[in-house]
Design a protein around this nucleic acid. Sequence first.
DNA 1: ACCTGAACACCGTTCAAGT
DNA 2: ACCTGAACACCGTTCAAGT
Lengths: 239, 239
Amino acid sequence: MPTPPGRRPRRPAPSRQPLTQERVVEAAIAVLDAEGLEAVTMRRVAQELGTGPASLYAHVSDKQELRELMLDRVAGEVRLPSEPDPARWREQLKEIASEVRRVYTSHRDIAKVSMGLIPTGPNLLAIADMELGLMRAGGVPARIAGLAVDTLGMYIDADAIEDTFYTATITGDDDPWEHFQKYLREIRAYMAALPADRYPNIVAMIDDLTAGGGAERFEFGLDLLLRGIASYVEDRPDA
Amino acid sequence: MPTPPGRRPRRPAPSRQPLTQERVVEAAIAVLDAEGLEAVTMRRVAQELGTGPASLYAHVSDKQELRELMLDRVAGEVRLPSEPDPARWREQLKEIASEVRRVYTSHRDIAKVSMGLIPTGPNLLAIADMELGLMRAGGVPARIAGLAVDTLGMYIDADAIEDTFYTATITGDDDPWEHFQKYLREIRAYMAALPADRYPNIVAMIDDLTAGGGAERFEFGLDLLLRGIASYVEDRPDA
DNA sequence: ACCTGAACACCGTTCAAGT
DNA sequence: ACCTGAACACCGTTCAAGT
């Protein structure tokens, strides 16, 4: 029997798949990737799933939980070294940090969720555990490693946020790199116009302050931290 | 002539003082201190001033500008050393960083505004300029100092955010310290319940991971960074 | 020039009602 | 058990109208 005219179902595809937490998180990440973290509202995610915002509350307790679930799912994309190599602990630690940064920045400003959060999800814990293992294997004292894993995480988050901040100012369909260069020129012009008697160092160091891309800056700070951590190793094999 | 009944003015005190940008920023910081950054909405600030939200747009272009003005005003509370002492450049740099952290954390989660922002306000620029001056006086190469001032700022912001995150979970009128201890016990219990075969290092290092208060953790990371920065000084006077 | 009311297009979350 | 519509108490920003 054909449906009588004027009695069409309200939604084109009534999404016969039942809602699950996984589907909610997936939809949320789709919105994140397309429009950024701020656009990930309960209403927008529900729309993506062809339902209303109230339906999500059967699968996540609130928006904050959804954000943390998104973060841990993204953290699942991080590829950790299959075998920890104690001889290369500093290099492997740097590789992990760079990989986390790469994964985070590939999902817009997801790093904002991580900032200041104690990791509890399975994937975030796996990353922290491997970092701790590497430092212990490298001879970093337990107390220092315990503090350093936190500092390292904070640094990665902060840098990922900074990175997406610069590249996210793109509103239209401009070339991202060209847009970034233009922004940099504006910053330089602003700093150059500052009173040199009040801000002598900034004015004198404009080029040094705006040098290097995001990746270079990240490597620099990461290296600072690792030098510092290595300085705590009793019998310094590489310091 | 007395006002006829039923013709009372709509607001009790029509705030005879004219609105200025300064008054708007002041009111916004009052809301920040009392209720946190998230409560600083255009509507809430307007309410504080006894007017409507639309009135604010004559003095700030939008909410983001208001937030940046709030940040720079807060940064004005930072007390910088009156005289830079090149011989004590590392100590003075640490003092400034600690002072910025102290001021930020005394204004709830204002550090969130700073995170990932290129400083343009007069007070933020003054802080950055002094940091640069100290590093240059200490013999840190210009290129390194230019990168390090950024890294240092990121670290301070991240730590201040983390700090307020832990102490801001206080909803009611509990003792903050007691509340924090309870939260820490929960975290420890959660970590202790993790499968030791999957997260061997976390389970083994629970005490090291949750050791130390906020200030101690901050000092640790700050020291890591300063050790790293000092390692770039050509003729190392104190490394 | 500054201020305002009203409106627009949004929010997160709850809850009684449905299946 | 899961889903829903409707409602509640909010958002930032714009704009025509007032003084």
